[in-house]
Design a protein around this nucleic acid. Structure first.
Lengths: 163, 163
DNA sequence: TGTTATTAGTTTACGTGTAAACTATTATTA
DNA sequence: TAATAATAGTTTACACGTAAACTAATAACA
């Protein structure tokens, strides 16, 4: 009990400077592990995590969306979305359409091929989510989500571009 | 209370498939936000998050470490470490030395210049950690760390290369 | 109406994570 | 001891994320 699990894993000699730092590092480290595992899963379907996210957003919306609207719903900033859509288009998973009313806007639409792939992924993905975190009790899951949402309050008000 | 905060932020129409998925997405999203903020901080000092991590590990150890030992303590895999060390070396923040006993091994040593930069960062970084997550009570921080550590158990046993 | 500002998106440059193939060195073992 | 395996790193190819500069189109407004 003298030294925490994360502390041992990082082979740190000294205790954490603060509980805040420990919690933050726990978030980063847990995310890295989970991203790593999820990345492998997506790769089995020829996708990356970012690509899957774009497709999931488009399917959830049920209709074409402007590029920047998609970018806004992901965490990241603007320019990355261009290449992301480029690659999805090359794989025939989305199509681009210029808006006729405002010719600056590019609408992105998901293809049937992509919808098919997504539907194949749904069950295995749900299973993977359970594998990753299903060993927490319902109360623990609820509390973890609550704490993470509360944690994010510090950055979500101060405009980061999204939302 | 009908729909959670994350659900609203993602503008999802339907509820989450499961509490597991919701918790996982909360981890990913919180991490993205925090990484974003921390990245800006590191950039002010001419570093990236990965570079800072390497330097922090080296300072913590207090002596030179083999490249792969460093890679192992970060979450990531092998090849990235080469370029990372390359760039740090170019900035004169670390030096490389071949081990004479086993000439395959490359030891990486932190420079005084880097130690100086790190010491300048310590206080502001601690302050940033508090800004990010200091609005959680001590009990909440402790519980958050506990839950994240428990969450990681699912991936830390199944060898990912590290630790 | 013509100039300026804003908006949507792209391009470029750089750092980094991932997989796969490769080199150099050391260990194993038939 | 010669062939083989294992280990430490590197290189290459590709997908992103970030910042900064840029284009095209629309809005605002003097």
């Amino acid at each position: 009990m003298a030294s925490s699990r994360l502390q041992r894993q990082l082979k740190k000699k000294k205790p954490f400077d603060s509980p805040e730092q420990e919690a933050n590092l726990n978030i980063l480290r847990t995310n890295d592990r989970f991203e790593n595992r999820l990345g492998k899963f997506f790769r089995e379907y020829g996708l990356t995590a970012s690509q899957y996210n774009v497709l999931r957003i488009l399917r959830g919306e049920g209709k074409p969306l402007p590029s920047l609207e998609i970018a806004g719903r992901m965490v990241q900033v603007v320019p990355a979305i261009t290449g992301l859509i480029d690659r999805l288009e090359k794989q025939e998973l989305v199509t681009r359409k210029r808006c006729s009313k405002d010719r600056r806007v590019v609408y992105v639409e998901i293809t049937d091929k992509a919808l098919e792939i997504l539907s194949q992924m749904d069950k295995p993905l749900a299973k993977l989510h359970r594998e990753l975190i299903g060993h927490l009790s319902p109360q623990e899951l609820k509390e973890l989500s609550r704490l993470l949402e509360k944690a994010r309050q510090s950055v979500e008000n101060n405009a980061t571009g999204a939302s």
